[in-house]
């Protein structure tokens, strides 16, 4: 399988890349690791006139995990993030980075590429929404920072404007006494997941929920989040009945498609069980335990 013909450009700087993308217009696409884009091009789901290869542009590979403001450059790969200080400080990041596809894809794929592609099955969009992350974008009109919920408009559709690139992902370090987990299920390592769940819980007195962030992936065109579901937990005891109620509330907002990865009913059942497990792991992590999370496959 071949992509349709395109012109190839490899600008040396971010400024050159933005200018080129703006000039080439609608038909141009940025290329980073290519692990989402290449399959899309080979399947002819997209036939760009031009590819602008940004993979070698300096200054976008950083993973700054110290302090309260976490910053990850758009060109940081899943593999490097998985072994970074950010991943060891925040196990939910490790869950996500290590669960993406297989070692080969993780070595090339980038966080910026995942977020910019906005494939409903991509892991970073769902996980980053759990952490209330922000997306730093640079374009011909300068830099702007977009909240992650506003960044995803639809499947494969983001708030990026013509000539704009994602340069950095930012999030605040979650407070002490909180914990998160990201869990998914897929048929095999290289398969896209059938269902994913991200949970982040702030605890008071080890049992009462101070704050909840609940997000589902692969369950609609965009990551699924529900304030109502989060309020089923906030201020309440984190017992199984309340967790079950929150799971039912958020799953009722989901719309997973029936496809080769499973029927909608199967995926809803899977979301429920992943949710309960993720919540349990998040609670134990908030209490300081070391617990394994991540994506399960056979």
């Amino acid at each position: 399988m071949y992509p349709a013909p395109f012109r190839y450009h490899r600008p040396a700087t971010l400024e050159d890349a933005m200018a080129l993308l703006a000039r080439l217009g609608d038909g141009a696409r940025p290329l980073a690791g290519g692990q989402s884009l290449l399959p899309i091009l080979k399947l002819r789901m997209d036939e760009p006139t031009d590819l602008v290869d940004i993979a070698r542009i300096p200054g976008m590979r950083h993973i700054d995990g110290q302090g309260e403001s976490i910053r990850i450059g758009a060109l940081a790969t899943h593999a490097r993030i998985a072994v970074s200080e950010v991943a060891s400080r925040f196990p939910i990041v490790q869950d996500c980075a290590t669960g993406i596809a297989d070692a080969q894809v993780r070595a090339r794929g980038t966080i910026g590429g995942s977020v910019s592609t906005a494939d409903p099955s991509c892991d970073w969009p769902t996980m980053l929404q759990v952490l209330d992350a922000e997306v730093a974008c640079r374009g011909p009109r300068g830099e702007r920072v977009v909240g992650i919920r506003d960044f995803f408009r639809d499947a494969y559709t983001t708030a990026l404007e013509e000539g704009e690139l994602v340069t950095e992902i930012r999030f605040r370090a979650p407070p002490a006494g909180s914990g998160g987990a990201y869990l998914g299920f897929k048929k095999a390592a290289p398969a896209y997941p059938a269902a994913t769940v991200g949970v982040h819980l702030g605890l008071a007195d080890g049992q009462v929920c101070r704050q909840a962030r609940l997000v589902l992936g692969c369950a609609g065109p965009r990551p699924v989040q529900s304030r109502e579901a989060e309020q089923e937990l906030e201020g309440k005891d984190l017992n199984r009945d309340n967790l079950r109620r929150a799971a039912e509330a958020i799953i009722s907002c989901s719309d997973p498609p029936s496809d080769s990865r499973g029927s909608a009913a199967f995926k809803r059942t899977m979301l429920h069980s992943l949710f309960m497990r993720a919540a349990e792991i998040a609670i134990r992590r908030a209490r300081g335990e070391t617990v394994k999370g991540g994506t399960l496959y056979v």
Partner: peptide, 27 residues
């Protein structure tokens, strides 16, 4: 598979195992 699944095309690129069906030669 030619779809980035099976790994038969795996080669080492600058030290990393990669799927050569999911990379352009220009990359």
């Amino acid at each position: 598979c030619d779809t980035s699944f099976c790994g038969a095309c795996t080669v080492i690129l600058d030290g990393d195992a990669v799927k050569s069906c999911t990379l352009l030669a220009v990359q």
